[in-house]
């Protein structure tokens, strides 16, 4: 990614905490309010025309981050600058015309489509709500988008239940792309699909990205999928980005011990390469009571004294490859 590449989204020190309901006894005894620190001070740029993957284990805050960026959640603090405009504090009304700029594709193609709406009506709604075209052009537009995502024209008059998982994911993509967004957030779009269908959807996303010059924030826990599709990869652990770099950098030369462990835990496809011991023991700690220092320190094989006391900053180690680890200071 060259330095001149245009930034589509700039996220600065974004924080999103979800408060946990307190028990009445806690309120009476004045215990402090606890919260899940889903996104904790994340700074990240997303460039135009790139596919940026966000990887990490469940609960690390990758979905919360994506949803906060497009203001599906309101951030606690920080700034989100989308296409040059600060959208952090915009009201719902001010946000509405901007919503077509960022669209989302979800993991579960079964629950993310309205079961009582025909596909044609679903798409029509998008065109009309966002004022994309004149009413008489809507039918033509629907035909175009169905063709783009590889669905037949009679899909218009059918309900989501009449489609298979892969086809439904195509409908989800058609719905998202109908309004010509600049940013597409794909939240685990292939995790629920079988291998042969997964490849179809991944290739479709790649093609559409080129054709529409889309910027895609691709959320996944599958490192093999990310390797195939992403230009850059950000690795998240407990609400923080611990490493960011080009796909090649991340896979060939992982800097953060956590990234290295993630890659090693992915089952190797060569049956001759079997290890007896797992790459890491234990579970990620709870995002509620986060100890000071590096969040990975407790499980890190290289942890030093400083790691338990001081939070490492995200630093550029080689051009375009940043990492938050005391090993490199």
């Amino acid at each position: 990614m060259s330095e001149e590449a245009k930034k589509l989204v700039e996220v600065k020190h974004l924080i999103k905490h979800f408060p946990i309901p307190r028990k009445i006894t806690d309120v009476l005894t004045n215990k402090p309010q606890k919260s899940v620190k889903a996104v904790d001070d994340v700074t990240l740029d997303i460039y135009s025309d790139e596919i940026l993957a966000l990887v990490g284990e469940s609960g690390c805050g990758k979905s919360s981050f994506a949803r906060t960026v497009i203001r599906l959640y309101d951030p606690d603090s920080g700034n989100i600058i989308m296409d040059g405009k600060d959208i952090t504090k915009l009201s719902k009304r001010e946000l509405r015309p901007l919503k077509r700029n960022s669209q989302m594709v979800f993991q579960d193609p079964y629950s993310s489509l309205n079961p009582r709406m025909m596909v044609g009506d679903m798409l029509k709604e998008e065109f009309i709500y966002h004022n994309i075209c004149k009413p008489e052009e809507v039918d033509k537009k629907i035909s175009d988008i169905l063709e783009k995502v590889g669905l037949s024209q009679d899909a218009k008059d059918r309900f989501p239940s009449e489609f298979s998982g892969g086809q439904r994911q195509r409908i989800g993509i058609a719905r998202a792309l109908a309004v010509n967004p600049k940013l597409l957030i794909a939240d685990e779009p292939v995790s629920a699909l079988d291998i042969s269908i997964q490849a179809q959807i991944l290739n479709l996303l790649k093609e559409l990205q080129k054709e529409y010059s889309l910027t895609i924030l691709f959320i996944s826990h599958n490192l093999n999928v990310v390797y195939y599709i992403a230009d850059r990869v950000a690795v998240m652990y407990l609400g923080k980005i611990v490493e960011l770099g080009t796909t090649n950098d991340i896979y060939e030369n992982p800097l953060h011990p956590y990234t290295d462990i993630l890659i090693k835990s992915s089952p190797n496809l060569d049956p001759r390469k079997r290890e007896e011991a797992p790459a890491i023991n234990g579970n990620p700690p709870s995002p509620i009571d986060i100890p000071p220092g590096c969040r990975f320190a407790k499980r890190c094989p290289f942890a030093m004294d400083i790691c338990h006391k001081e939070l490492p900053e995200l630093k550029e180690i080689t051009p375009g490859h940043t990492c938050a680890c005391h090993k490199y200071s």
Binding site: A199, N222, I229, S266
Partner: peptide, 23 residues
């Protein structure tokens, strides 16, 4: 063979995925 060609993997450098057509 189709499953193997459709599988994204870090073992395959720079090769594209070949989906199995149909369902």
């Amino acid at each position: 063979k189709g499953l193997i060609d459709a599988l994204p993997s870090t073992e395959k450098k720079n090769s594209s995925l070949m989906p199995i057509k149909g369902t």
